[in-house]
Write a protein that binds this DNA or RNA. Structure first.
Lengths: 239, 239
DNA sequence: AAAGAATGTTAAAGAATGTTAAAAGGCCAG
DNA sequence: CTGGCCTTTTAACATTCTTTAACATTCTTT
């Protein structure tokens, strides 16, 4: 990884183009997306490859999907990637909300491109050493179970012996993966729906409930594992 | 390293004291130095030990040795420690110079302490790979009862035997957790409402009263436990 | 002591979730 | 192309959670 790749998401064509040119001039490779949904598609396509992004610059106000939601989804796929918000709003609530979503920094418009560059460097300097931790984790430990998300395989191991094994369907595996990433934390319903079913509707939500029941059955043999419901919010995998 | 240690360098006694108290309140251990030379001495003395600092907050304008020079010297001793500048000057030249000296961030006075905290957390999260938000304290002792907030499980133990067990709902658990954190202190109604129900309205307050009744029922079997009401203020868990 | 507000308690209503089974959709071998 | 098999969605019914309503009691103020 010699070239640093930036995902820039900005709907203002003017600013987007200028920033892109500036960053390219400074030796970065920049991909520019115009809205939140497009951005997430681009991000996912590049993820895991040799060509995955090193840093995200996200406008907060975007068409189709706002920057904060986008950040949450990106972090779901890659927990470590640095994220900087570009925002016209300077209200405290917003900045705090942004940091909660896992931002590393933010810039309030209008900003100096030099300062942006300095902040990017400060963050990249810190995140480079961990760069290999960026590689996507597809293996999870869940109580006695080992779950390989890419193989969609869930195995129970008791002193080295495989005592139980389930081949999961794609939907089962995707849901269990999201739960595993957020182990011991609440996975928001709407987030899971958008990640797996693409949109949050009543029927998809019911479908998800059916899958929760299935996962509970698979994991039943280890009583220390539980998928608990947080009423009105989502689910939490406890172990 | 369970406690995060901060080196705070600020010559304004007022601001220094306030910041220190705020950070201590938030669970950090803070050392306060008044000038650049003193600061560097304190830093060196703590370096290398188990008790070395995790982050520096440096005022730029300091007696005896300015913040930028101090930062350079500190970086000489420890290349990785995160540094945040506190500056009254907002001129671009200065901020750039600061970043060149190896800053991770800077705050222009006057700033919000909350925002400072958010930025500190963003930086610490990245520099402490082991920081795991899942492992906060969630176990409480309430009379004969043990309450695990993350598992939402309330058990009565009598000489090692579980004689009673309640799986709490999310709302029940959140409320009992707040009460437990403030054990033998008054938990303010409006605080609990904002934390659990997001806003303080008449109906949410009544809902909370219903939950208080439920918790009292769960805890009834140990007469040494009481949830008392402080009229017009809130509730207190006594035991 | 009386009035008004705050709290205590129970029950009912409505919404969310749990679970099972049947229907619909997709894929592949024959 | 077509029947069987697997996956996913929809339907139906059961259960649980939260809020709201209603009425009782307690507290504070006057």
């Amino acid at each position: 990884m010699s070239v640093t790749k930036i995902l820039l998401v900005e709907d203002d064509p003017n600013l987007g183009q200028i920033l892109r040119e500036y960053l390219d001039l400074k030796g970065y490779t920049t991909d520019l997306a115009r809205d939140g949904e497009q951005a997430f598609r681009v991000f996912q396509q590049n993820q895991g490859e040799d060509s995955s992004f090193d840093l995200c610059l996200l406008d907060v106000m975007l068409p189709k999907k706002d920057g904060f939601s986008l950040a949450k989804e990106i972090r779901m796929v890659n927990k470590n990637i640095p994220i900087i918000f570009l925002t016209a709003k300077s209200m405290k609530e917003d900045t705090l909300e942004g940091f909660r979503a896992g931002a590393d920094d933010y810039m309030t418009k209008p900003f100096s491109m030099e300062e942006l560059l300095m902040r990017m460097k400060a963050i990249l300097r810190r995140s480079q050493p961990t760069a290999d931790a960026t590689k996507e984790n597809t293996r999870f430990q869940i109580g006695d179970f080992t779950f390989d998300a890419s193989q969609q395989l869930l195995q129970r191991l008791e002193n080295g012996q495989v005592t139980e094994q389930h081949k999961l369907t794609s939907k089962e595996a995707e849901l269990l993966k999201l739960l595993s990433i957020n182990k011991n934390q609440t996975l928001e319903r709407s987030l899971a729906l958008k990640m797996i079913w693409q949109n949050d509707t009543y029927f998809n939500a019911r479908s998800m409930d059916v899958y929760i029941t299935k996962l509970r059955k698979y994991l039943k043999s280890d009583p220390s594992i539980e998928i608990i419901n947080v009423h009105g919010t989502g689910f939490r995998l406890m172990c």
